[in-house]
């Protein structure tokens, strides 16, 4: 349980670091609000790793040139 908590924390911190340091360099590519990285952070914190990671991956897959994007919060 403890390990899981730290793992979630580590992943969320890593995403934050990406958002702070790398993401601005890549430009704004995301079609959604909240952005894919923000979504991943929130969904992993809220639903845990087992549900959160697949949901985050699915979100990135949806964020492609053929999708419409838009407001897509965590359910």
């Amino acid at each position: 349980m403890k390990l899981k908590y730290y793992l979630v924390k580590l992943i969320v911190k890593t995403i934050s670091l990406y958002q702070y340091m790398i993401s601005p360099y890549l430009g704004k590519n995301c079609k959604y609000y909240p952005t894919c990285s923000e979504y991943a952070k929130q969904v992993i914190e809220k639903k845990g790793l087992i549900k959160g990671i697949p949901l985050s991956i699915w979100r990135i897959i949806r964020c492609n040139p053929f999708s419409h994007g838009g407001y897509d919060p965590i359910k």
């Binding site: 590519n29 995301c30 079609k31 952005t35 964020c63 492609n64 040139p65 838009g70």
Partner: peptide
């Protein structure tokens, strides 16, 4: 999101590319 729609700035690429 409304602002995006109005200005048609929704980036075409997305995160996947």
């Amino acid at each position: 999101m409304d602002l995006y729609k109005k200005n048609k700035v929704n980036p075409i690429g997305g995160c996947l590319p």
